[in-house]
Amino acid sequence: MKRVLITGANRGLGLELTRQALERGDLVFATCRRPESATDLHALAGHYPDRLTLVALDVTDEASIRAAHAAVKAATGSLDLLINNAGVYPGAGPEDPENQRLGQFTAEVALQVLRVNAVGPLLVAQAFLDLLRAGTKPRILSLSSGQGSITWKAAGDPYHYSASKATLNMYMRALAAEIGQYGVLSMLVDPGWVRTGMGGTAAAQDPAVAAKGILRLAEQLHDEENGSFVTWKNEFVPW
């Protein structure tokens, strides 16, 4: 049984990752901003009352991160896997910021996307590093995107989302170089274009398939792959 923390676990790919981790027997800490209204997570908790804990966490709020860490630490002395899944794609969700096209840019929206998609995951990893260092073969998987590849970038829109994922890539690559000495490995994963509220119904990727691949990656990650950027199929993504 692994001890797993998943951010943004109340919907989409985060919810599917939570479901599959529970199905394979893991102890899961599922985080989201408003767990009291996370209907699907509460339904899962009804099936796995002893292995699923809902935790309030806003990755853009440092006080919230500290409180979440305290809640998890009160329940377990270690974590084996942190999945940085929480993120926004401007305009894709009812509460997500819009206006990331040329002629509509504002600093406020740009910084909001960067805080959620890049800075937040770094702060979460930093906060939970003590529990990860106490874990068994601890791993940090951060969900990036092919949109964050400078090599692959061939269109303008989306500016903020692409920039945020490229920033996440650098943060987690730098983190990998530092935390590898503690036995904690960090990997960036492109889950593909997934059929979720963020990805939309036209997306080709089944979230269940993507989630299965992501969880498999955590098991297969070796020391020499620390800091790598791959697809959910474990195929190299150019930076």
Rank of each mutant, 00 (worst) to 15 (best):
I6H: 13
E16C: 01
L17R: 03
L22N: 14
G25I: 03
F29A: 05
A30F: 15
T39F: 06
L44K: 04
A45L: 06
R51V: 00
T53Q: 11
T53C: 03
L54N: 09
V55Q: 11
D58P: 02
E62R: 14
R66F: 03
R66K: 12
A71Q: 07
V72Y: 13
A74K: 14
A74W: 14
T76L: 09
N84W: 02
N84D: 14
G87I: 03
V88L: 09
T106S: 12
R115D: 14
G120H: 08
L123H: 10
A125R: 13
Q126Y: 15
A127P: 02
A127H: 09
L132I: 00
R133H: 05
Q147S: 10
I150R: 08
I150P: 08
A154I: 01
D157F: 13
Y161S: 01
A166W: 04
L168K: 01
Y171T: 04
M172K: 03
R173F: 12
R173M: 06
Q181F: 04
V184R: 08
S186Q: 13
V189W: 15
P191G: 07
P191C: 06
A202R: 11
A203S: 12
A204G: 07
Q205I: 02
A208N: 12
A211R: 10
L221Y: 03
E224S: 11
N226A: 06
F229K: 08
V230D: 14
F236L: 09
P238I: 00
